[in-house]
Design a protein around this nucleic acid. Structure first.
Lengths: 204, 204
DNA sequence: ATCCATGTAGACAGACTTGTCTGAATGTGG
DNA sequence: CCACATTCAGACAAGTCTGTCTACATGGAT
């Protein structure tokens, strides 16, 4: 098989391209876990599609649970990086809030309306493994903080009002996300965006 | 074993108590699927805890997927019946809307903050089996219609405004539900309720 | 009287799962 | 030069899963 040669030559290139075996595993797992679900994706499929040996996976990740944590972190990084790029020329906090919902719709569409990775994971693992639980709560809290930071920057808003507003927007964010997943359509997020704009108009 | 005798005598009683073997299976599956998740609950556990034979399960349900549909229908029935009971003396549509969020919090707490069964199912089965997809969309559409019917009854509201308002409330409903699932707390639904009350105040 | 619906118990097939282990190869750093 | 980190291939263990099947029991309806 030429595949073997490919893999080995690939490994030599890897330092220059910075796509290591570990990175291949994370990327493959991130794709498969999100598209097929965590429970329905076996380790064997991950290593096969990543083109790595099983021992290599377990060398980098002691268990599937650890790979799951890396998957969620990668999803979070991708989201934050994509959003920052999308908002790079937007300064007004009001506009940043609204455009976040635009980007959310784009992001969900680009991800086959798979919904929120973290809500999906806790839906698949109701018993809450410690590491996974911690990761989900940490990421969700960062999402919440994002909205709180933005509303606090709105001109002339009181601190308490900003917090209430942020929590409402966060609810619309998650509500829009899961409804887009259910309906496989961006319509719910458009309504959520409209709701956010109406909320912001109240504060002028 | 006395168990055998128990089972058989149970079967004879079943017509009077109206708790058939099929009903036992549905109740057990409804509990286990919601608490443990659909994928993580095996047929063998269902029949064991229901106290029925495997052949009996497959006599009533051709496949696990069919049992899943029955599970979702049962969850929907339980929700609607519980809500109707909770709202039986509440006539004002505004109050019915707000109290629906109160009942949602009670319901989630009573169900170990397991979240929305239908969102969980589509999170576990991303490929969307035909029967399951149809069921989830049907139930979600009924939930949506519930809010639309109520907002239309608000005094002096325009038809279009009522529709927009209902969709916003529905977003807060689902957002509150999944966030309660994440945080294992009713706090998000309290914020959602407050958001609904604020929305309703706009329409006086 | 006999058929049929409904129920029991439990073995079995065939596939899947996670994780371990053996044994070898490669390239780099000390 | 040798030790170490990293990677390969793939067998294996020990368990899970869904669904099928055999063989039998029971009670009501025709």
């Amino acid at each position: 098989m030429s595949e073997c040669g490919f893999v080995y030559s690939f490994a030599t290139v890897m330092e220059t391209t910075d796509i290591s075996v570990k990175e291949h595993i994370i990327q493959t797992a991130t794709r498969l876990f999100h598209e097929q679900g965590y429970n329905r994706t076996g380790i064997n499929q991950v290593i096969e599609e990543a083109g790595v040996a099983k021992a290599s996976l377990y060398y980098h990740f002691p268990s599937k649970e650890d790979l799951c944590v890396a998957y969620m972190q990668r999803r979070a990084d991708n989201w934050v990086n994509g959003l920052e790029e999308y908002l790079k020329n937007v300064d007004d906090p009001r506009e940043r809030l609204v455009k976040t919902f635009d980007y959310r719709a784009i992001h969900l569409k680009n991800n086959q309306f798979g919904g929120c990775s973290y809500i999906k994971i806790i839906s698949e693992l109701p018993q809450r493994g410690e590491k996974i639980d911690e990761k989900v709560l940490g990421i969700k809290e960062k999402q919440r903080k994002f909205f709180h930071d933005l509303t606090r920057k709105l001109a002339g808003i009181e601190k308490k009002s900003a917090a209430v507003l942020a929590d409402k927007i966060f609810l619309l964010f998650d509500g829009g996300t899961v409804q887009c997943q259910v309906y496989r359509d961006t319509a719910p997020l458009k309504i959520a965006k409209k709701a956010v704009m109406d909320l912001l108009d109240e504060y002028w």
